[in-house]
Amino acid sequence: MDLSAISATLLVASLMVAATPILLAALGELIVEKAGVLNLGVEGMMITGAICGFATAVETGNPVLGFAAAALGGAMLSLVFGVLTQIFLSNQVATGLALTLFGLGLSSLLGQGYVGIKPPSTARLDLGPLSDLPFVGRVVFGHDWVVYLSLFLVVATWYFLRRTRAGLKLRAVGESHHAAHALGLKVRAVRLCAIAFGGAMAGLGGAYLSLVRVPQWTEGMTAGAGWIALAIVVFSSWRPGGVLLGAYLFGGVTVLQLNLQAAGVALPVEYLSMSPYLITIAVLVVMSARGSKRSLGAPADLGKQFHATH
């Protein structure tokens, strides 16, 4: 057993890559939930984004277009959920689960011609001498553009929610749709926008899997990442910074347990492979035990149906 063989630099660098898909998807879902909508279809939207992005990148040879198509595909699928829950007032939990089922099927259908193909690669940004600095060179300046985009979006989401009028409206809708409606806010429109944004972000996260992290297309390739993204939103107590923390914690433990195995640490493997889930639960318990007096930040009208009666 040789712990010194585990390089902190590379560990941090690879946990950032490992966490990016769930970070993107969880940020999207955060906005959706802040608007008072619970969309459990993240897995379905992610995998739809994964194939839309992959197919477009392969056909055009341009990964950036691929990501754009992934966002579009995820958003379109999410609008199925949006129309059902906002206009037909269907139950959000069930509709979200149905969306996952549908998305998994749809993505396999779309992807039938794309098995065993290599996508065009998304290069790390070349930041010249900055990338050669010790530690920070690799960790801070050694990534592809999507990693930076995801970090930028964490800040942007925070800014949007806390510092803009639109963000305020969105939160108002999520806290009390009746009050928001009485104030003249278009509850349904706000929620549909939030849902589409969530879909686009889940699509981006899926495309990051199929275009960068893996990169290939295979059916069912998200393998539960969407569910983890949902868990991360709860973990974050509905705060963008918490989402970042949760995604990096989860990604970090996942990567670390594999590194520990590779370094030959004599710990039972089955416990190591459960560790990302157990540690996430443990951290949440500690956080919620400390803050048990105050509200955990769940939007008050999360998951409730809204129907304007006047």
Partner: peptide, 8 residues
Amino acid sequence: FDPAKEAD
């Protein structure tokens, strides 16, 4: 089969 985990 879990491509992401295999990559890691």
